[in-house]
Design a binder for these strands. Structure first.
Lengths: 340, 340
DNA sequence: GTAGCGCGTGGGAACGCTCCCACTCTCTTC
DNA sequence: GAAGAGAGTGGGAGCGTTCCCACGCGCTAC
C-alpha cells in the first residue's frame, strides 16, 4: 500500500534484469536502432515486468526537450468557455499535436494576478514552445514570452510588425464579402453590429465592412454603426439602437453569429420580416447559424483549421529556430442561407 | 540572435559571481533560511544580473516534486466549451492553486485516440497530482490514474465504492427540494426533463425527483418523464414530448437551466402561461437563469466552490498520502424567481 | 583559558537519464 | 591468411539541481 516496496524502477534495473547494459536498454526505448532482436526482446520484457516508465525530468535534463507544447489562452474563463470558437481551435491543435507525438497543456491567463506565475512557469523550460490565443491589443504576453526565448505562434491576431509567427483568418475580406452580398441583394441602408474595437477580430471586421461599402461607392453612415461585445445580449442591444436611430435599415452585417442571433430576435420582436424587409449576415458559421430562424447567412471560418495551422507553423519554427517568422492568413467564404 | 552567447546561466555561475558556494546560492533561492544578509544580497544581485532561472527538470529530478497539478476534463471539446459550469470550476481551481503556489495545467481527454498519450504523460511524473472532472460512468480513466499511483480527486462524481477522493454537489437533495417546491405551489402533475442517465448528475437529479414525489406521497408517472441531453435543443424536444403525452402537465423540473430555458420557450409557443398555468424549475443557477422570461426558479450550486474544494482535498491528500480518501458533498439551495 | 554551542558556509554525492567513445566480434575483401 | 569494415554492446561522463555533512568561526558558560 505504501511506497517502500515499489520505488519506481530505473533504467539501470531494467538493464540488469534484461542482462544488458544501460546503453542498450536506452536504445531500445528510443527508436531502437542498432539493437539485436534478442536484446530488444529481453529489454521489452523487463520493461513490462517491472512496469518501467521513463523519468521525464531526467530525460529533459539531458536532452533539453520536453515534448510538450503549451496553449495559452489570454481570456477570462467566462469567454473561453462561452465561445465555441475556442472549442474548434483546441480540437485542431490537439489533433495536430497528437499526430506529432507532442503533449498539449492548456494554460489560462485570465486574471492579472496569475500572470507572473504563468510567465515564470513558461520560463523554466517546461515546454518546448507556446501557442498563444490572444485577441486583445494591449496584451504584453507575446513580448514577455518572446523575451524568454521560447518559440511561439500567435493565433487570431496578426502581428502588425511581424514580430511573431501568426495565423489569422482573413477577417477583412470576409466582412467585405458579406457587405458585398448585402449590396447585391439590393440593400440600400446596410448597418453593422461590430465587435469590441480593441480586439483584432472586431476591428478588422469593421474595416472590412467599410471597404465593402467603398466597393459599392458608398460611404458609411455613423447612424448605421453600433458596437457590440460578441455576446447575444450585446447584439440585441446594438440592434435596438440601430432600429431606433435608423428605422429604415434594410441590411445588417453582424461581426459574429451570436450577435446576429440577437439581432434576428430583436428584428422579429419589432415585426420586421427577415429576409423580406431586412437581410442579416453573421460571421463564424458557428453551429448556431443553422438553428436560428431563419437560418443565418454567414461568413465561414474554420477554427479547427486555424489550430492545425498554428501547430504546423510552430513545428516549422522548432525545426529551424533562426528562420524569420512567417505568417499565415486563412481564407474565408460566404455561406448563403435564409436570412438574406 | 542565436544561442551561443547566452547559454542559460546555472546555479554554479550565480554562486561564482556572488562569491559564495553553490549551497548558499541554493538556500537563497529556496526560502532562504540560515543565510547572512550579505550573502543573500550578493546572490540576489547575481541572479538579477545574469537573468538566472532555475532549471525545473534538474530540480524535479532530485526533489521528486513538480509543483504542478493537472486538471483532466473528460469531455468533448464541444461540451467543455459550451458549459458555463466548467468555467466556474476552472476559475475556482485556478484561484486556489495559485494561492498554494502551484501551477495548473489543463488536459482534455476527449478523443479515445489521445488517451494513451495522456496516460503515459501523467505517468511520467510531470505532475504531483490530478484533478479529474468526469461526468460519465463508464470511464476507466480514474482507475488508470489511480494505478499510476498519482494522488487524485474526482469532481462531479461520487465514487460509489469510495475508491477515490471526490467532491460533488448534492444533486439528489437539490432536485428533491425543487420538486417539493413545485408540490407546495399546488402543482399536481409534476414532470421532469432529465439529463443523460449515464451521467451521475443526470441520474441523481432524476433520483431526487423521484424522492421528492415520494415525500409528497405520490408515485412517478412515466408519461411525465422525458430524457434530455443538457442542451437547450434537448430541453425543447423533451418538453414537446411531455406536452404531447400529458397536455395537463402543470409543473416541470428540468435537470439544468439550459434545458429549462428550452422548456420555457416551448411552453410559450404552446400558449401556456408561466407561472400561471405551469411552473418551471431548473438546476445550476447559471447566469442564464436571470435572463429567461420569466426569470428562472432554480437550484443553486457553486461550481467555483466545487473547484476550490477539489484543490483543498487534493492538497490534503498530498500532505498525507496514506490517509484514507475523504469525500465532500456540497450543499445546494433553491432560488425562487418568477417561473414558479 | 578551555569546552561547548550554533550559525553560516562550501562542496561532495546523488537523482535517472542520454550521449558518445571504445571495445569485441563477425563477416567481407584482397 | 591478414587487414578492414561495420554491427552490436557496455559503461563513463555529464546535465543542474537539492540534500546533507563537515568545517570554521564567534560567542557564552564554566
Amino acid at each position: 500500500m505504501s511506497r517502500p516496496p515499489s520505488p519506481r524502477p530505473t533504467l539501470e534495473e531494467v538493464a540488469r534484469r534484461a542482462g544488458v547494459g544501460r546503453g542498450t536498454a536506452s536504445r531500445v526505448i528510443n527508436g531502437g536502432e542498432r539493437v539485436s532482436a534478442r536484446a530488444r526482446q529481453a529489454v521489452e520484457e523487463a520493461i513490462a515486468e517491472l512496469g518501467y516508465v521513463p523519468n521525464s525530468a531526467a530525460r529533459t535534463l539531458v536532452t533539453r526537450r520536453t515534448d510538450t507544447i503549451a496553449l495559452v489562452i489570454a481570456e477570462s474563463e467566462e469567454r473561453i468557455f462561452g465561445e465555441p470558437f475556442f472549442a474548434g481551435v483546441v480540437r485542431g491543435i490537439g489533433t495536430a499535436l497528437s499526430e506529432a507525438n507532442l503533449q498539449l497543456v492548456l494554460m489560462l491567463a485570465s486574471s492579472g494576478q496569475r500572470s507572473e506565475h504563468l510567465d515564470s512557469w513558461l520560463g523554466r523550460q517546461h515546454v518546448d514552445g507556446v501557442l498563444l490565443l490572444s485577441l486583445h491589443d494591449d496584451d504584453t504576453l507575446p513580448d514577455r514570452i518572446r523575451a524568454r526565448g521560447l518559440p511561439m505562434v500567435v493565433g487570431g491576431q496578426r502581428s502588425g510588425e511581424e514580430r511573431f509567427g501568426f495565423v489569422d483568418v482573413d477577417n477583412r475580406l470576409g466582412a467585405r464579402l458579406a457587405v458585398g452580398h448585402l449590396v447585391n441583394r439590393g440593400r440600400r441602408r446596410v448597418a453593422t453590429v461590430t465587435g469590441p474595437l480593441d480586439m483584432v477580430a472586431g476591428r478588422s471586421r469593421y474595416e472590412g465592412y467599410l471597404s465593402g461599402l467603398e466597393d459599392a461607392g458608398r460611404t458609411a453612415d455613423p447612424g448605421l454603426v453600433a458596437t457590440g461585445d460578441f455576446s447575444q445580449a450585446g447584439g440585441e442591444a446594438a440592434m435596438r439602437e440601430i432600429l431606433l436611430r435608423r428605422p429604415d435599415v434594410d441590411g445588417v452585417f453582424c461581426a459574429n453569429d451570436l450577435m446576429a442571433a440577437g439581432a434576428l430576435r430583436v428584428l422579429r420582436e419589432a415585426g420586421r420580416d427577415v429576409p423580406g424587409e431586412v437581410s442579416v449576415v453573421g460571421f463564424d458559421d458557428a453551429p448556431l447559424a443553422l438553428s436560428t430562424e431563419p437560418p443565418l447567412t454567414t461568413v465561414h471560418q474554420s477554427p479547427e483549421r486555424m489550430g492545425r495551422e498554428m501547430v504546423d507553423l510552430l513545428l516549422a519554427t522548432l525545426g529551424s529556430p533562426d528562420e524569420p517568422q512567417e505568417g499565415r492568413v486563412l481564407p474565408t467564404h460566404l455561406v448563403v442561407r435564409g436570412s438574406s
